[in-house]
Nucleic acid binder design. Structure first.
Lengths: 186, 186
DNA sequence: ATCATGACTGACCGATCGGCCAGTTTTCAA
DNA sequence: TTGAAAACTGGCCGATCGGTCAGTCATGAT
């Protein structure tokens, strides 16, 4: 008697997850724009119509792909907000690297969206949180340090692109050194 | 009696230049993939067929847009090849920044091509020269320094994207500081 | 004035895109 | 067992893409 609507229908959730999984791989390998709904459907083993049955459109698929990373970034921003400036900076350095390494796939995806990222409401929150994180990373109101923080982020994200061959630890170590050199926090 | 075919027909060269000019602006603003031949033609004040009369295809337009920057990079690589390691590094730092700042428009363009840049023979030489420059920038065979040089380049190119509002000097100063911090050559 | 050549264009082509819809198959509570 | 809802699909749509081609128009040497 449908007294528990909160439990997700197994079939629905299974297909949905598979679509998101395959979409992530394709977005990462070929870019968002170069990946068609048919490509995603074929990789996921269903029809294009099924993809549009589970998602309202291609941007909705993108939002689902980005969601885990966006949630982690949002949580990090929230945590940093309750710390002192210096502590927030240290947390930002360590955690930003972790997030970029762990979610390095979404960095590739975001790469392909940059020219039109302002017009995508699906990623607006992620972008805004990234800006916040940039401020925490700078650790100062000095415009130079703020610019250097953005410089560091660009280097960090660039380094995490196409970095499947590197191990997480190697990538983390490299980014840690580079970030602390730029921010002079070594 | 057509004894001087080397002189370019004024009309031909004028239209060609205008197409390249407008294509550059559009590629920079919206990205290569998001810009159609019709967009370029409309901006240049001619028909799409005219664009394809002057260029063999869309990739040829891209090559023409990238050509001045590619030539400068090639010249820099050639110059650095005849210097000592330390001098080559110093030259790379200074000149790479200059090129990235002056040609910051093409940096935006290249941004949109990255996912498929390996399959574009039109930019292969530019990419190869960029790799060479990365080696000169590292100034060492140490893998860590090599990776840090790539990190620095990513930061530098990222900083030059969407930077029309900044003055050339401001941008140059910022990049110089960041590069020397990462490479520890300050 | 003529006319061959270069510059240019409108119309069209096949392919592919995101998205839609009517209808079929599967699932599962009653 | 059954029937309604959920899950899924083939086929189609309009739009847009890069590219082709036959043909028009402008130019300038003769």
């Amino acid at each position: 008697m449908m007294h528990d609507m909160a439990v997700t229908t197994p079939a629905r959730e299974r297909t949905r997850r598979e679509i998101v999984r395959q979409a992530m791989d394709l977005f990462q390998a070929a870019g968002y724009n170069a990946t068609s709904l048919q490509d995603i459907a074929t990789a996921a083993g269903c029809s294009k119509a099924t993809v549009l049955y589970h998602f309202s459109g291609k941007p909705a698929v993108l939002a689902a792909v980005l969601e885990p990373a966006a949630a982690d970034v949002a949580a990090l921003v929230k945590a940093a907000a309750e710390l002192s400036r210096a502590d927030a900076q240290e947390l930002a350095i360590r955690s930003f690297i972790d997030l970029a390494v762990v979610h390095r796939g979404v960095v590739d995806v975001l790469q392909d969206i940059l020219p039109v990222i302002e017009q995508m409401p699906e990623v607006a929150q992620l972008v805004a949180d990234g800006m916040q994180l940039s401020d925490y990373l700078a650790g100062s109101d000095d415009p130079l340090e703020q610019d250097l923080a953005k410089f560091a982020i660009n280097g960090l994200l660039g380094e995490c692109r196409h970095a499947q061959e590197r191990t997480d630890d190697d990538l983390r170590r490299l980014c840690d050194i580079a970030l602390r050199r730029i921010l002079r926090r070594a």
